[in-house]
Amino acid sequence: MFSIGNIPTDLLGGALYIFQRYTPMFIFGVRNTLMISLTATIIGLFIGLLFATLKNLRVLKQDVFFVKLIKYGLKTIANVYIEVFRGTPMMVQAVFLYYGLRPTLGWSPFHAAIVIVSVNTGAYMAEIIRAGIQSLDDGQYEAARSIGMKHSVAMITVILPQAIKNSFPAIGNEFVVNIKDTSVLNVIGVTELFFQSFAIAGNIYRFTDTFFVTAIIYLFLTLTVTSILRVIEKKMDTPSGMVGASSSFSGAFKVFRKGGTS
C-alpha cells in the first residue's frame, strides 16, 4: 500500500512529505479541534456567567430564612462545581464522563467532547467572571439598584457586561488554552488534531516528523487566534493593565491556566 522507504530521512524533509501526503487528515483534525474548542469556549462562557452570578449572590441580613437557605445552597453548588472541575485533570473528566454517561446518553465522542470541554471551561470562566465582577466598583451595583433595578436586572444590564469586557483578555485566553487542551480528548477517541497525528504517525512509524508538523499547526492556530484577540481587545478598549493577557505564552497569566496540560 505504501513504502516507508520513500519518506525523506531528515526532519524537515520528512515533515514536509508527511504534511503533503496527509493534508486531508490534518485538516480534518484541525477542523474538529477548532469546532470543539470554539463551541465549548462560548458555551463555557455562558456556564461561567451563570455560576459566577451564583457564587456572587449576596446573603443579606434582612432576607427571610428560606431565601437565605436557597442562596447558601446555590453558592455551595457553584463552589463545588468550580472546585471539582478545576481540581481534576480534563483527561480524567473526559474518560469518567464519556464512559459513565455513554450507556444513558449513547453519545458520540464528538458530542461528549463538546460537553466535557464546555463544563471544564465553565469552571474556569466562572472564576474569571467572578474576578471581573469583583474588580468593579460597588458603586456600579448601588447606582443600578438606586434607580430601581432588581438584583437580576442590575446584574444583566450593568454588572455582567462590564465584567465580561474587563476580563475579555482572560476569556480569550481560555479559547487559546482550549485549542491546545482538546488534545487530551484523544483518550476518548475524538478525531481532533492530536488523534489524527497519532494515527498518521502510527501508520508510517515516524513520530518525530509527524509531531513536528502537529506542533507547527498548533502554533499556527494559537498565534493566529491570539493576534485576532489582540485586535478585538484594542477595539473593545479593555483597561490598559489587562491588555495583552490573552497570549498563549504569558507567564503572568498561568494562575488562570489549567494544570499540567500546556
Binding site: 458603586g139 456600579q140 448601588e142 430601581g148
Partner: peptide, 25 residues
C-alpha cells in the same frame, strides 16, 4: 416595612453619589 416593594419605591427617590457611579460601559 419588610413587605414594602423597595424597587418600585427607589424610582421615586433619585440618588446622586459622590463618585458619580455612571455606568461606564
Amino acid at each position: 416595612d419588610s413587605k414594602f416593594d423597595i424597587n418600585k419605591y427607589r424610582t421615586k427617590v433619585g440618588m446622586i453619589f459622590q463618585q458619580f457611579n455612571l455606568f461606564n460601559h
